[in-house]
Design a protein around this nucleic acid. Structure first.
Lengths: 243, 243
DNA sequence: AGTGGTTCAATGGTCCAACCAATTTCTGCA
DNA sequence: TGCAGAAATTGGTTGGACCATTGAACCACT
């Protein structure tokens, strides 16, 4: 008796609201930063209660798709499309040094793969863009005599983009935002990230040579130096200000 | 001169509700599956409106921390802790074949890294557990003359767990749930995953030998066979039923 | 005992009509 | 013209009401 009866489903009101909202955003061609209708107008137009609209928007806000500013309005924070898929991750106990090390292991995995894919797929334009970012970073390194997280981050982002797979940038960007205070912070280590500097160019060289395994190896070396710096930092700092 | 005017403590009401709820869950030692107080009781106890309670719970529901069943109650779906960090990812346009290929690239990155870490960190107990899962999978393969997604998945999960980093399992589990219908589906290819079978044991061998780079290499080979199967499937199927 | 139907209380889902608080816009005076 | 204060706009919160679903208790009939 395995006749699978379809698990009957009546679409929830708030899901319907979001669906309608997706249609509206597409029809109006709204992009990130733009303001969408007020809750009251949405409620009236969609013939649902303002409460229901709010539940729907709360969902989107939780997913980072939208930002609500009291007294001002609700603004799009990212592009929306009908076939979006949501993958909320909650990391238990990721607020300390051990948590940072764990995310760094994820980053190592993705960084290596992205570099390898990039070496395979990057065209002339992408390679030129990466080289440009590399130049900016190296200039900043020389003038300021040290690593600059901003320019460093831009370089890596360029690599992710050239990997041809937007998921890399999305995942690592989320982690980057999450651990901003750690990621950016020297963590008590002087010349934090200094050791990683030369590997940026070696990674670029392997990418430009379309050598995926070489690029992967260099990326692994880079992350290894960051891990070392981090471990030195952990020794220096008790990390009691974990907020 | 107002030296130290308060650092403004007006935490959002719903965040406060969630904070209180975290405290409650910990004090009562509630685990996944258990039921938490009704919205009305929470509203009364916390001295906030039921609507506010609902907004807070909507957030948690969106994050997959909680499940609401009308007429029954609200149930915990995962462990909660005070220092949780949330990383919601929304993947645009990931609902088709190309999207599946992209997630597979992520999986390749994480799978390889997890296998390598596992080879470094797995103790006797973890290795025994992986071997047990491997045995179950191989039995299922023989009796049913083909890959079994269920047992296959259990094997990989055992590897993720033994990696010592829960993030691997979390991320890949989320992707697994998301693409359930694709992941599980033969996609029109007969003997889907057949080619990947032998690599499960070679991965295990490298892990048991504490050979991280060997394990990484075998994991990469495994994913490569899956990608090949997928490409064959794409040729067979027009994938017009993308929902 | 067991099967099926009914009742009823509990619970999440939706709605309404206010009011509060932050923001933006407008207005009128200097 | 410049700018402080009023007014309108908008998200945030409240309290109360009713609906829809669930599950347990109860009951009648076999």
């Amino acid at each position: 008796m395995t006749d699978f009866l379809p698990p009957i489903q009546t679409m929830a009101r708030d899901d319907a609201v979001l669906k309608a909202l997706v249609g509206f955003v597409r029809q109006e061609a709204l992009g990130p930063g733009e303001k969408l209708p007020t809750e009251r107008i949405l409620a009236e137009r969609l013939k649902v209660s303002r409460n229901t609209v709010r539940e729907a928007l709360t969902r989107w806000e939780g997913l980072g798709l939208v930002e609500r500013r009291q007294g001002s309005g609700t603004y799009l924070k990212a592009a929306v499309s009908p076939d979006m898929l949501h993958m909320p991750l909650t990391l238990a106990g990721g607020n300390d040094f051990a948590g940072l090390m764990r995310t760094l292991e994820i980053r190592r995995a993705l960084e290596a793969e992205a570099a390898a894919l990039c070496a395979i797929r990057a065209g002339k334009a992408e390679i030129a863009e990466i080289e440009r970012k590399l130049g900016i970073m190296e200039d900043a390194f020389r003038t300021r005599a040290g690593m600059s997280s901003e320019e460093d981050w831009e370089f890596h982002q360029a690599v992710y983009r050239a990997s041809g797979n937007p998921l890399f940038e999305q995942i690592i960007s989320a982690m980057h935002e999450l651990f901003h205070r750690f990621w950016e912070h020297p963590l008590g280590v002087r010349d934090f990230g200094h050791a990683s500097f030369p590997y940026h160019r070696t990674i670029f060289d392997r990418i430009a040579a379309h050598d995926p395994e070489g690029a992967r190896a260099e990326a692994l070396k880079l992350i290894a130096t960051v891990e070392d710096d981090l471990k030195r930092g952990a020794a220096n700092l008790k990390l009691s200000d974990r907020r």
